[in-house]
């Protein structure tokens, strides 16, 4: 479903990704682990199309189509969702307005009917409740005054509302206490565990993987996939650290 081949990318002329190859078939969850600065977020941004993240070589296809040829909003409409490591604050724009306009814009470009205000609020409230977030928070400006954990939970509420085909989740688990971690893990399983969907789960720690069991685990180091394996690789990394596991 997501096929990355020999992907090279630079940020501010500095090479960060040095030939990443990765295939996530439909129905699978793949975890990407790796030390700080190894290029995990860069990979996530390149997949979502962040300006300034230049692909110098290689390819990425999504459902057979050239992902890298699409604008960020077209990737979203195609069903790609990026859960941000650092969700962005937007003062003056309420979550409800932000998500309703975003979702309807996606639906328009897919030729689907837009949701009315009432329909959207119902959907948003249901998703917030499922993730244990007070739906009143959706009336507030996007992420303004949210704690780190609330921001991450809100990313998952957004994912529930958008109902994407594929999610790249960049350290969604960092900054979460154990209850929030459980809620987020359950949210990922509920929203994304389906035969026609896929997930790339970027994480530092084993603990989220206790709730969202990955089909494969990859270790990214210095912009390259250094090792791949089954779920047991995450346990090994947890026990021995990246240096040992690499050796």
């Amino acid at each position: 479903m997501l096929e990355i081949t020999n992907l090279h990318a630079t940020v501010a002329d500095k090479p960060i990704l040095n030939g990443v190859s990765l295939h996530v078939p439909a129905g699978e969850v793949h975890a990407i682990m790796g030390p700080n600065g190894s290029g995990k977020s860069t990979l996530a941004y390149v997949l979502a199309g962040r300006p300034g993240y230049e692909v110098s070589e290689g390819s990425a296809t999504f459902g057979g189509a050239d992902l890298l040829a699409l604008e960020p909003h077209e990737r979203a409409a195609a069903g790609l969702f990026l859960g941000f490591q650092y969700p962005v604050e937007i003062p003056g724009v309420s979550y409800l307005q932000f998500l309703r306009e975003s979702l309807n814009s996606q639906r328009r470009s897919r030729g689907e009917a837009e949701l009315s205000g009432g329909e959207f609020i119902k959907l948003a409230k249901a998703q917030a409740t499922l993730l244990g977030m007070d739906a009143e928070m959706l009336k507030r400006p996007v992420n303004v005054g949210f704690s780190g954990g609330e921001k991450k939970r809100a990313e998952m509420v957004q994912m529930g509302i958008m109902n994407p085909k594929f999610a790249v989740l960049d350290e969604t688990d960092s900054g979460l206490d154990i209850d929030a971690l459980k809620a987020v893990g359950a949210g990922i399983n509920r929203i994304m565990r389906a035969p026609e969907k896929g997930v790339l789960l970027i994480t530092h720690y084993q603990r989220l993987l206790d709730y969202v069991e990955p089909d494969k685990v990859h270790v990214l180091r210095a912009g390259l996939i250094e090792r791949s394996g089954g779920p047991e690789l995450a346990h090994e990394l947890e026990r021995e650290g990246y240096a040992e596991a690499a050796a």
Partner: peptide
Amino acid sequence: FYAESRGLDPASARALLLEG
């Protein structure tokens, strides 16, 4: 970029941010 990654085209994202 955050707004566009959620599906807003660049013109709509600009209008929304300007409003905000």
